[in-house]
Structure formats: C-alpha cells, structure tokens
C-alpha cells in the first residue's frame, strides 16, 4: 500500500526549485500561484495591502522551504495552500498583538504521522442503497457526490472515475473517504 507520488507540472517545478534553486521553474510557479493567492487574500482580508503581504510571505516560504515539499504526501497546490493558510493565521494573530501563544506551527503539523492502513469501504456498498442513507447522500458536497455516484451506483473503478473526471487518482480516493465519513456521521446522528 505504497503512497501515491504526485507528479505533474507544479510538483516537478517545486522539485527543481528544491534541488537546483531553479529560477525559471520558480518563476512559472510564481506567475501561476501569486495572482490566485492574491485573490484568496483579498477574500480573506478584504484589503489589498494585507493580501499582497500574504502573497509575498507565502511565495517567499515556497522559495525558501521548497525542500520540505514531499510529493508522496500531497500535491503542490495542497502544500502551497497550507503555507498561505499558516501565513494568514500568523498575520492575524500578530495584528491582534497576541504574544507567546498559539501559532500556526503549533496547530498544523507539517510532518509525517505514522502510516495508517487504508480503511476498507466495501462494507458500505449495500448499506449505501438503503433509504436511510439517500437523503444524506443528496446532501454531500457536489464534488464528493459525483465521485460516489460513479463508484457506487455506476460501479466504475477508481481509475475510470479519475480518467473520466480528469482528476488525480488520489483525489478520487480522498473524496470517497470524505463522503463515507460524512455518511457515517449522519448515520450516527440518526441512531442516537
């Protein structure tokens, strides 16, 4: 059950930055992600100056810490998102002038937890069809519902769904896990 190693344009670019301090690869990453991070920052701060500060700090971290990116743990976009989230969190804390207290480094661990067995989902096949689950199924986030319909109702393989929706295999699997957990939670609520 080896972890999937992500490969793609941004994952490759990050490894060039990490290994060769490759400026061309970094410039590509920058010109794609900086404008998107700015939009994200505008949404979060509602203020251009702070949004730009967040972009600058985030992209500086991407440059400085590229060696920490591990393609077996996730996509480049996931890694960049987590950096932006942490930068934003610490910026907000600093603005509220809180000292010695909770920081992004405490809250979000950027390391490997020990490997876990992939919990099987086969026991859900029949349960899924029951009337009890149907309303919850409809309330799943659209992206997850779509993957669930293809896997459980149209009985397609994870690989087929990945090809059909043009999303990575890992995303298909993670959407199934998220959806199953939501359904499990919904069932627990109806039971108690």
């Amino acid at each position: 059950n080896a972890p999937e190693i992500r490969t793609g344009q941004w994952e490759d670019a990050l490894s060039f930055v990490a290994v060769h301090q490759d400026k061309a690869a970094y410039s590509e990453l920058f010109s794609y992600f900086a404008p998107r991070l700015k939009a994200f920052g505008m949404k979060m701060f509602g203020n251009e100056q702070q949004a730009l500060e967040m972009v600058q700090d985030t992209m500086l971290n991407v440059w400085r810490k590229a060696r920490l990116f591990d393609p077996s743990r996730g996509c480049a976009s996931t890694w960049i998102f987590t950096i932006a989230r942490n930068v934003r969190f610490d910026m907000l804390r600093k603005k509220q002038s809180r000292k010695d207290d909770i920081s992004a480094d405490d809250l979000w661990y950027d390391g490997n937890y020990p490997e876990q067995e992939d919990s099987g989902s086969h026991q859900w096949d029949t349960v899924l069809m029951t009337e009890k689950l149907a309303p919850h199924f409809d309330r799943l986030p659209e992206a997850q519902r779509l993957v669930m319909v293809k896997v459980y109702l149209e009985e397609k393989s994870h690989q087929e769904v990945s090809d059909e929706l043009a999303i990575p295999l890992g995303t298909v699997k993670s959407r199934i896990r998220l959806a199953l957990d939501r359904l499990r939670e919904a069932l627990d609520d109806t039971r108690s």
Binding site: R36, F40, G74, W79, F81, P114, Q116
Partner: peptide, 25 residues
Amino acid sequence: PHCQQLCLDLSAEQGLMLEKSAPAA
C-alpha cells in the same frame, strides 16, 4: 489516525480549489 487522514483529504480539496480558482482581477 482517522482524523489525520481526513485532514490530509480536506487540505487536498482546499489546494485544488486554490489551483482552479481565478487569478485576482
């Protein structure tokens, strides 16, 4: 471990949203 995996999955969704989002106008 259960929530460790869920958080990895949720972060991946957030990352994908960032990647697919529109650049600032």
